[in-house]
Design a protein around this nucleic acid. Sequence first.
DNA 1: TAGAAAATTTAGCCCAAGCTAACTTTTCAG
DNA 2: CTGAAAAGTTAGCTTGGGCTAAATTTTCTA
Lengths: 124, 124
Amino acid sequence: MRQAHESEMAEDYVELIAELIEARGEARPIEIAERLGVKPPTVTKNISRLKAAGLVRRERYRAIFLTEAGQQLAESCRRRHRIVVAFLQLLGVDEETAERDAEGIEHHVSKTTLAAFERALEKC
Amino acid sequence: MRQAHESEMAEDYVELIAELIEARGEARPIEIAERLGVKPPTVTKNISRLKAAGLVRRERYRAIFLTEAGQQLAESCRRRHRIVVAFLQLLGVDEETAERDAEGIEHHVSKTTLAAFERALEKC
DNA sequence: TAGAAAATTTAGCCCAAGCTAACTTTTCAG
DNA sequence: CTGAAAAGTTAGCTTGGGCTAAATTTTCTA
């Protein structure tokens, strides 16, 4: 069983990198640092971990891109994130809180629970 | 604003200590280690952190008890835990998965979201 | 009740993820 | 096209939470 078990760090980074690439065409360390509320050296270190894990492609001083594996992980994280946020809002949670809580919750939602959220969403 | 901001570690420990005290009258490091899937020295270290944080009362080589603050924290954690588990089950998630997911999710559920879960539970 | 077994602690290690200070590279404006 | 500003990296430190091995204390049992 190839249970990926990527860290929350990895998930947060690839998710954000995918967003930045979509919005700007590339992901820059300084933007990642700002968005994650972290300092640039921390980003440098973590990006090199993601590179070692085969999730990003990157040359020194250049922008960051996702590998195939990174894109796949990002896609499933973003999907899960959207579902969690939508589900919380369905329950009557305001958007801001839904976003904040989802960031913490999403990493702990199993396939089973995610499916349950989707069912609830379908039932309008 | 006295936002406690206890760590997940602290929450997990006081929650478990409260359970053990309820079940056995006292909480022993070795039981905590087994239940949390951690080795005894880790428990020793973390218990001394909880003591420094004013959450537990404890003498060397003796059982562990909760302070007033610890009891209050444990109570709110246990309540939140029960609500999260019940809510997941209400959605059709099996008990085992609900328990497993709740352990990760509970630490990230805001008051707002918890209230939303409760509302859903009341509506049967 | 003495000695073995079980429980607990101490010492010393590791790793992830954060930081600051200082340095290097890239970018941009004049 | 050059030099200052911005961006990125490196080095080295810190903290939390984990581990093993070894020492110590407590608890049983013969």
